[in-house]
Design a protein around this nucleic acid. Structure first.
Lengths: 189, 189
DNA sequence: AGGAACCGAATGAACGTTCGATTGGTTGAT
DNA sequence: ATCAACCAATCGAACGTTCATTCGGTTCCT
């Protein structure tokens, strides 16, 4: 893992919370400084400006998420079990970290986002779906289609859960993933 | 339909394009004024401020979308056909109106959004899914689950298509909807 | 005439960034 | 061991710019 100084981490962490709550506007550098217990000038010791701060925050969190996903995939489970676990855990991750959910959604759809591609493309995640096709576990369609179905359901259900006051029970979620699995899995002959 | 003056419509339309391209920041009132061929002061004749302008723009576009969806549902088609058409058309709508896609995603996840609920809840759309359950066309699960699967796939695939340089063929999309339908539909006994 | 629509320069506040000063720790020569 | 030199880290007041908003005036329509 990278060696990030405490101050730097505090700045990133504070920015995440603030942007999640107040949006990109609504969070001036002065607020970030106050909230992270740092002087305004100090931020510029670690980041060249607000834009770089936001970009680094994005990378910082994306890395966290990628590690999280990777750790879930390494298990000694069947493909289906990994599939289910991955979906449930991803949903859980976003639902319990709403500020990450908001930050991501705001960042990805903003001009700050240089790569202009959803973060879910990278890492072993997309690869996991691709290998599922190759191994004959998933239907042989464009992997991006599977990605859209899978991640779309994760994001949408997380948002519904966090935004709205609807609560999903474990059973609800299991129903959802099982349905997803049956949509995407290649039926056994 | 509302009677919206030409100037007002021009302001809304310009704001949509600019926010879609430059984000909420990045689009000062002065730019909106220039782009819509109106003096800065004039904007304040129609809107009390930037916030109200953004809020009205959201309502304005949501209404467009709701009308669009409603018009698709009224057809003399079977439930399944409506389901398919609706998904395809929604995908098409977002894919061919990227500025609407961006604006929505930015707005919904920003503090401007008072209602704090995805816009897809309203209108006949959610109702369409609910009635599908009641009529025995769709599986009897929480309608929000069906919504998440359905709209999640629409949004995610639109984003992949618009952001990334991946192009989906008609066949790709049909595969996706058919897959969705087969999971969500109640199997005939 | 009178009011609504419209204009755009002027205003003032908010904000990102800069900078000169201060602290703290490390190095290396004495 | 001591201290001088040095640099990174930190501070926060001050600066300059950007931007939303205002307002006094002009045009257009009735």
């Amino acid at each position: 893992m990278e060696e990030i100084s405490d101050k730097k981490k505090a700045i990133l962490e504070a920015t995440l919370e603030l942007v999640g709550e107040y949006g990109f506007h609504g969070t001036p550098m002065s607020l970030i400084a106050k909230e992270s217990g740092v002087a305004a000038g100090t931020i510029y010791h670690y980041f060249s400006g607000k834009e770089e701060l936001l970009n680094e925050l994005y990378l910082y969190i994306k890395q966290k998420l990628v590690h999280y996903v990777d750790s879930k995939i390494q298990d000694e489970l069947s493909y289906k079990e990994k599939f289910i676990r991955l979906w449930i855990d991803l949903h859980e991750f976003y639902s319990t970290h709403p500020s990450i959910l908001f930050f991501f959604e705001q960042y990805v759809n903003s001009p700050y986002n240089k790569e202009r591609s959803p973060h879910h493309f990278q890492g072993k995640f997309f690869q996991f779906l691709q290998s599922g096709i190759e191994e004959g576990q998933l239907k042989p369609v464009k992997p991006e289609i599977l990605l859209a179905l899978f991640i779309g359901a994760v994001m949408a259900s997380s948002k519904i859960r966090v935004f709205g006051s609807i609560s999903f029970s474990d059973e609800d979620l299991n129903q959802a993933v099982e349905m997803l699995w049956s949509t995407m899995a290649l039926a056994k002959k």
